[in-house]
Structure formats: structure tokens, C-alpha cells
Amino acid sequence: MTALPPPSAKKLGLVIDLDTCVGCHACVTACKGWNDQGYGVPLSDQNAYGSEPSGTFLNRVHSYEVQPDQGTAQVINFPRSCLHCENAPCVTVCPTGASYKRAEDGIVLVNEDACIGCGLCAWACPYGARELDQAAGVMKKCTLCVDRIYNENLPEEDRQPACVRTCPAGARHFGDLGDPDSDVSKLVADRGGYELMPEMDTKPVNRYLPPRPKGPEQEVDILAPLLDVKTTGFAGWLDRILEKI
């Protein structure tokens, strides 16, 4: 049923640290790799080796330059995926009931067997989190790796979304944002985590941690200590004699 469930106590989601993300796109690749063979139909590519390749991805990494009023510009890499909104507009617009939000943990999923591929949910999402697979004609979106996080066949450290598990910079965190004592909730509180486009009234679960403030640019010659060579032994004796001559 595409009516939204009452707000769940458990709100699983991601916390993405924009200070730490290096923009390597490993999360994009890991996501595509896992979701190509797990939940639902594979994520197809079109014209993959041609002049204009395109394909279905559940996660995309943008790179922005942010210019503060004073000081130097910063480069900020910005991963974008489903935010598993509490007030998910993609769920209520669905005419077939294929798009739904789980009452137990708040994950937003698509039942691909019921999806007619009308694309209205992708239109309703402000974040571009949904992409219609061009081969299968059904809507694809982040599942929060629902087939990993509860999967007891996997070692415990692997029971988190593929993007989080793979991130080499530790910029992605997974947890229960409905529990104020969880690690992710504490992280959000400490770092002033925020939601994207609050004016759209979607109440996203995922949070983004802002880049830490940077101090003024420092004119430091980082090679100076290496160039100040202190000689010892025979070379030192020679150095001192030659200086005196």
C-alpha cells in the first residue's frame, strides 16, 4: 500500500561526511557491483562502450567548488543517493503500490514485480534518487543494501551497505538515526549534520556532515625542515672546516 506508515522508531539511514569524502567514486562502484546481482533486476547499462554510455546507478558522486565570502575556495565531493525520507513523496504518488516504505525500519523500497515503470516516483523525488532501468522498465533505487544488513550468512562486519563497507576514507556511516544514542546520531549532533532541501518537506532520514571550517591559508614552506641538513661525523668536521676557510 502506498500510504506512508506511521513514523517508525527505527530509522535506518546514512550519514555522509563531506569533510572526509575524497570523491573516489568507490561507493558508486561498490553499489553497482552489489546491486547488480542481489535484490531485484540487474542495473543495466546502455551503449556501455560507445560514444555516449549511460546506465542505471543508485549512487552518484558530484564535485562542487564552494567559494566562501572570504578565504580560498574549497572542493567538496558530494555523494547523492536515496535519503529514505519519512515523508517520502515517491511512495504516495505510486499508482500500483510498488513503491513503499517499510514500517519496521523506514527503508524505502520498490516491489519490482508490481512496478509499471510510469516514472512518476522519479518525478516526485527532489534528490534524483530513482532511475528507471532502461532494460527492465522498472524503477531502481537504493535499498540501503537490505540484502546485506540483515544477512546472517555474511560476517558481521559486512552487514552494512556496500557503499559504507567500501569507503576507503571512512566518509560514510550507517546506523539507526531514530535512536538518539546511536553512533550515527551522536555524530550528527557533534558535527551539525543537516538534511538536504528542507523546503521540499520530505523529512529525509540521511544526514550530511558539513565540511569543517578551514583556517586562513598559511604561507609555510613545507620543505624547509628537510633542507636544513645537520651533518655529523666526518662530513660534519669537513663542513665546519670548510665554513672557517
Binding site: S63, V66, A73, Q74, E195, E199, P210, P211
Partner: peptide, 14 residues
């Protein structure tokens, strides 16, 4: 507002 980086400065696609 889309990136939440408006409070840091002016945002441009790199």
C-alpha cells in the same frame, strides 16, 4: 539548499 553548502559559500559545479 540542494547541497546544504549554501551556508559555506557560493556553490558551483566542478
Amino acid at each position: 539548499s540542494a547541497t546544504g553548502l549554501g551556508s559555506v559559500g557560493k556553490v558551483r559545479v566542478l
